[in-house]
């Protein structure tokens, strides 16, 4: 019963986010605030339903799955949550036009991958590795940090789009709808600024867990190496921004590069069956 309710809740959540995506797109084109209000309401409804779905699934499974496609569901949840926080702080509904569809895409992807992962049982070695509060906190921090990086990168992409329009003296609909350079730069900086410490702490906990479980050659794992690269890129972003006072354009390119590696890491983590960090991968 609980599993059935969880499934219904998940599909209703996806339906609400689909509606929100359409309304945000319409808001972006028409600039009618009423549409953005409906879109935000639907996003909120989708978030509540998604939270309920995750909660019911965790109750049914006697614990939240933190591996495989389930992390995509958690990533979508975190993305919507962080979007709400950002939207509350800077009042920029236009980001919903980008971020809500991304959250929806993550949920759809999770639904596609879930059947393949459903029958997977962790090995004895995996159970030993995962059986720690450090792993739970590690996953939560990484998921939230990735959501922050995604928002920072979305803002950076917006920055570059607007900057290009300003340089070319274009006054397209895109130009008129996008928020100012100063505002997008601020959103990117804050999102990365909050995500980076979370990512660092998440990585640290992961490393501690690997060391304490005596995983040999843990640092050679491709996911660990990619995660180190992501950490270095966003570290460079913050250094360039605050240390060297680099231009918004340079910082924006660095943030986008960071997101490319976050996505690459997410794909590798779910597809490459090598190393010790392979939870939830078939085969």
């Amino acid at each position: 019963m609980l599993v059935r309710l969880q499934g219904i809740s998940m599909w209703l959540s996806m339906a609400a986010l689909t509606g929100a995506t359409v309304l945000y797109a319409y808001f972006f084109l028409s600039k009618k605030t009423l549409h953005s209000r409906y879109a935000t309401a639907l996003t909120g409804a989708g978030f509540v339903l998604l939270t309920a779905s995750i909660g019911m699934y965790s109750s049914a499974a006697q614990g939240t799955r933190l591996v495989g496609p389930y992390t995509l569901v958690l990533a979508a949840w975190a993305l919507v949550f962080v979007y709400f926080v950002v939207e509350h702080l800077v009042k920029l509904k236009v980001y919903g036009t980008v971020l809500v569809p991304v959250a929806l895409a993550l949920l759809v992807l999770a639904q596609i991958l879930l059947p393949a992962a459903a029958g997977l049982k962790p090995t004895v070695e995996e159970v030993r590795l995962l059986d720690s509060w450090r792993v739970i906190v590690h996953v939560v921090l990484i998921v939230f940090a990735n959501a922050g990086f995604a928002i920072g990168a979305a803002a950076s992409g917006t920055y570059l789009a607007l900057e290009a329009q300003l340089k070319r003296h274009r006054t397209t609909t895109l130009f008129k709808r996008l928020p100012s350079l100063a505002q997008t730069d601020l959103v990117a900086r804050r999102a990365v600024g909050w995500a980076y410490p979370a990512y660092s702490a998440g990585l640290l906990l992961g490393v501690l867990r690997a060391v304490e479980t005596d995983v040999t050659g843990w640092w050679q794992d491709p996911r660990v190496m990619l995660a180190g690269l992501v950490w270095a890129i966003f570290g460079a972003y913050l250094y360039l921004h605050y240390g060297r006072e680099a231009s918004g354009r340079t910082s924006a390119y660095v943030a986008l590069a960071g997101l490319v590696f976050v996505v690459a890491l997410a794909i590798v983590a779910r597809t490459v069956p090598a190393g010790f960090h392979i939870f939830g991968i078939a085969g």
Partner: peptide, 9 residues
């Protein structure tokens, strides 16, 4: 209007 696109306020 253009100045506000760059500096916001």
């Amino acid at each position: 209007e253009l100045a506000r696109k760059v500096f916001d306020t």
